[in-house]
């Protein structure tokens, strides 16, 4: 086991990516994710990897496309406005069925917004960040440890299902420091018969492409991709339940707000209010099943988010609107205090 170290969330992503076998990082600086790039700039040259600060976010995501085409693990990272720029490239990655990791350490929006933390790219990430019918795997870490662990998992699942994955962290997760035990180095053993590696005149050449001249073929590929998504929804959905056994109120929250909510739950329990939390760890696929099951037992749901109410829609869909769902949120870079969440719990309990 690796020794425990003290790291910033952004650094943990970078080191975990290296341990997961990623040797190609392409990025462009933007607060609050710049430490990912800064760490890669220091580390990659020492281990024979490539760190490249591209001329733009658009260039960086297309460099990721290039490396991913060869079957190598590649990543980029940015924050909200930069992710908007990358969406074209992410759509092309999805259209070409290429695995890659895109890290989004969210800041406030829309537009340039601000540099303080936010979760307002929830829709962007979970509905398919770009044009066309597609999804990316979306992971929402809630600790520096999870920043590392989910980076590792994201690379693996992206490769397994041949699709892009997004690590969707809020700015606080990127900037905070915590002790972390880094994952063990990954052994890269997966065969990639689709990769463009040179035929050596020994096989048919592979083509990486997202343009299909035949409408019938394009339809078939879209349907096939969505069949794969069904498998992922059935097997790769991840969440954490906290104090849900006897809960009458269920909080749904991820990232930093899940941590604040945990505080509020502990306090509410002291005051005799039976409240628990379902914390989605994957945002796509979304943990619909445990939420629907919870809807049979609890009397109300409270969504705690750093946006104007985005995940709340997925909660309402998951529980088929069987119970009331209220929103407790702050935007603009503000984080709700445990007291604010406690007040929302009390209101839902009335």
């Amino acid at each position: 086991m690796q020794e425990k170290v003290l790291m910033k969330g952004n650094e943990a992503i970078a080191e975990a990516a290296i341990l997961a076998g990623c040797r190609h990082y392409f990025g462009y600086p933007i607060t609050p994710q710049t430490e990912v790039a800064a760490y890669m700039a220091k580390r990659m040259p020492k281990i024979g990897g490539t760190f490249l600060q591209a001329e733009s976010e658009i260039a960086a995501i297309n460099m990721v496309y290039g490396v991913a085409s060869t079957g190598k693990r590649a990543m980029t990272s940015s924050s909200s406005p930069g992710i908007s720029l990358k969406t074209e490239g992410i759509s092309y990655l999805a259209g070409a069925d290429l695995p890659a990791l895109i890290v989004n350490v969210q800041r406030g929006g829309p537009g340039l917004g601000g540099i303080q933390p936010s979760q307002s790219d929830y829709f962007l990430a979970t509905r398919g960040p770009g044009h066309g019918d597609f999804h990316v795997l979306v992971f929402a870490p809630s600790s520096v440890q999870e920043m590392a662990d989910l980076t590792s998992l994201a690379f693996d699942l992206a490769e397994k299902y041949r699709m892009p994955a997004m690590l969707l962290a809020d700015g606080t997760m990127g900037q905070m420091m915590e002790p972390v035990v880094l994952p063990e180095p990954t052994e890269l053993t997966r065969e990639k018969p689709w990769a463009v590696t040179g035929t050596k005149c020994a096989r048919e050449h592979n083509i990486i492409n997202s343009l299909y001249l035949s409408p019938q073929e394009l339809e078939r590929l879209n349907i096939e991709r969505f069949e794969r998504y069904k498998t992922i929804e059935a097997t790769e959905t991840r969440w954490e339940s906290f104090m849900m056994d006897d809960a009458e109120i269920c909080i749904v929250s991820c990232g930093i707000t899940a941590r604040v909510s945990r505080n509020a739950i502990v306090e509410a329990r002291k005051q005799g209010i039976k409240v628990g939390m379902i914390r989605p760890i994957t945002l796509w696929p979304f943990p619909e099943k445990p939420l629907l099951e919870a809807a049979e037992k609890v009397k109300a749901f409270v969504c705690v988010e750093l946006n104007m109410g985005q995940m709340i829609q997925d909660v309402e869909l998951a529980i088929k609107c069987r119970k009331p769902v209220s929103l407790c949120s702050r935007v603009g870079g503000m984080i709700p205090s445990p007291e604010e969440v406690l007040a929302a719990i009390k209101q839902a309990n009335e």
Binding site: M177, E178, S241, M243, R259, V260, R262, N263, V266
Partner: peptide
């Protein structure tokens, strides 16, 4: 100030 969070016991 940094985290505003204690550790909780999760029943994962």
């Amino acid at each position: 100030l940094k985290t505003e969070v204690p550790n909780g016991e999760a029943d994962i």
